[in-house]
Every structure is written in C-alpha cells, then in structure tokens.
Computed example of a mutant assay.
Amino acid sequence: MTRGIYITANDKFTDQAIALLNSIRTYDNQTPVVLIPYDNNYHQVAERLQQDYGVQVYDDLNFIERLSIQLQQIFGEKFFARPNQFRKQACWFGPFDEFLYIDTDIVVFEKIIDRLDSLSEYDFLCCDYQHAGGLTNVFTPKIYTVFSPEELKGMFNGGWWASKKNLLSEQDLYDTFAECAAHPEYFDFSQKTSDQPIINYMILKRVKRRFNLVLGENKGPGNWAGSQHFQQDGYRLIDTKVNQPLQYLHWAGIRIEPGCPYWEIWEHYRYLHEPKPDTLPQSKPSQNPFQKNIRKLKNQFKSFF
C-alpha cells in the first residue's frame, strides 16, 4: 500500500507551495508528494519543488485536462469562477492507494500523513470546523430536501481531505456533477467558491464511511487562520479553547501577505532555508476584499471561534 500527498499549484503560487513543502518536510522527509498542475503555467514551480523536495508532477496530464474540461462543461464553461479547482479530482486516480489532498495556503505542524491511519476504519477523512459555520460557502437551505441536519454535520472545507484510490470512479464524478447541475439551487456560490459545494455533495451522497477528525473522542483543534484565539508557541500554534496544538493552519479566504493573521508563521516556513528579502509587499487593508470575507466568516463561525 502506498500513501502520499497531492497538491495543486501554478507558478503564481510558488511561494505558497514552498511554505507548505517546507512545513511538510520539517516533520516528514519520506512521504511522496505529487503536484497536480493548476493550469499550464506550472513549469517553474514544478522544477523548484522537484529540486528541493522531490515533488513529482502527476504523470497523466492529458487525463487531468480531459477530466477538468468534462466536469466544467457539465455546468457550462462560464458557470464557475475558478473551474481549474476541479483538477484536484484527479487524486482519485493517481499513484497513491491512500492519499491526502492539501491546499497550498496551508502549513502543517506535524507528520500530517499519519492522520491517514484512520482510513483503516473510514473511507474519507476531513479535519475542520466548516460545519460549525452553517451552510454558507457550501449549500443553501434548499439542501435540507436532500440531506438531514445530522448528515450536514459532515460538511467540510475542500482544502484538506483524505481518501482512497478508486473509491469513486470517473463516471461517479460525471454523474454527480450532472445531478448537481440539475439542481444549482442547492449550492452557495455567492463568494465564488467553485469545487467545495460539489465535492461536499458528492461525498455526503456517495461515501457512507466518512469521519471528521476534529470530532473524535477529544474535540480537536481548529485550523482556520481567521481564528484569533490561537496562541503562538515558537512557530507552532495552540488552540486555547481545547488546549491542543494545531495540526495545520489554513488561510482560507485570506490573502497571505504582511499584516495578515499569523503572518510570522507563514513567513517562517516560506524562508526556512533561504534568506528573507529585505522588503516585502505591504498590504493595503482598505483595498483588500479578503478582509471583508474574514469578517463574514467570523460571523458565520462565531459559534466556535
């Protein structure tokens, strides 16, 4: 059995990919990592990640392109704000028997691949408090005609999830997307999320043995960078509400730049093995739409955060 990590990136997000890989390799020098190119502008980031971290490019680029185009066309070419996010669905058909998908706007604080040990009991894992914020960025209230409130506690953030190769077939993907396209009223795309609503629907509908790792016997730590109650411990963080160290930190919906939440953590991992530039671009809060998203998300997640 093989285990590995998938990421998506292009040259524009080289810095984020380096920070993520530096954090992964701080705790784990062995687990293979495969890059799924976000678009055709990926050669510089691929070269850097291969050279420094042994990251390999997904070996069937034609399949990624075909899969992405067909999934996009089911909804219509202009429906999604960021249709290339669906390229990550190639995870189901790559080289790893058990895999973790992880967004590049994340850094980890442990040997994160060990979290896949729970796949001995489950077929799909997530690890976040997306469900605590209500339906926003995933579903609309119309989804209650499909899933019960109890089932909807299984909602998750699309930036971190783990599963098994070929658990879903390529046809399963096409069938699910067609079902979703027939009912766009179920989904919340108001803040330009693309893949998260669809993959949530697919997992809730098709995977019974699923588990959210933060809902274990001991309530797990949060991981969203918009949370203000994390306490810094060196270049790691402690969730003071549950008195546990974070497994990872995710800047979902937050532009990573000087002045953003937990900037020092990200900056540490980005420049872990090279000199930090003398000057870095300064943020402009008055022009930064991501700050509005942070306020919205804090209101949505106030029950937990």
Rank of each mutant, 00 (worst) to 15 (best):
E170R: 12
Q228N: 07
D105Q: 02
R25Y: 13
D11I: 01
F139D: 09
A90S: 15
K111Q: 11
F305W: 10
Q72Y: 00
Y271R: 06
T193Q: 04
D97E: 14
H229F: 07
K142S: 15
Q228F: 06
K296G: 08
Q228L: 10
M202R: 04
A46M: 05
M202E: 01
D60H: 14
D52G: 03
I106C: 15
A225F: 04
S190R: 07
D39T: 04
Y53C: 06
Q56N: 09
Q30A: 07
F189G: 04
P285R: 08
Q228K: 08
T176H: 00
Y122G: 00
Q130W: 10
K208D: 10
G54M: 01
D11Y: 02
S23W: 01
I24K: 06
V207I: 15
M155Q: 14
C91K: 11
D11P: 00
L119P: 00
G76Q: 13
Y262H: 11
N166T: 01
G4C: 11
I143T: 13
T14N: 09
T136C: 08
N22L: 11
G220N: 09
Y122Q: 06
T14W: 02
S283P: 06
Q191H: 11
F187A: 02
R236S: 14
Q287Y: 09
F304H: 07
L168H: 02
F189L: 07
D97Q: 13
R82C: 06
E267D: 13
Y38A: 01
M202P: 01
F139C: 05
G234E: 07
F75V: 02
A19W: 10
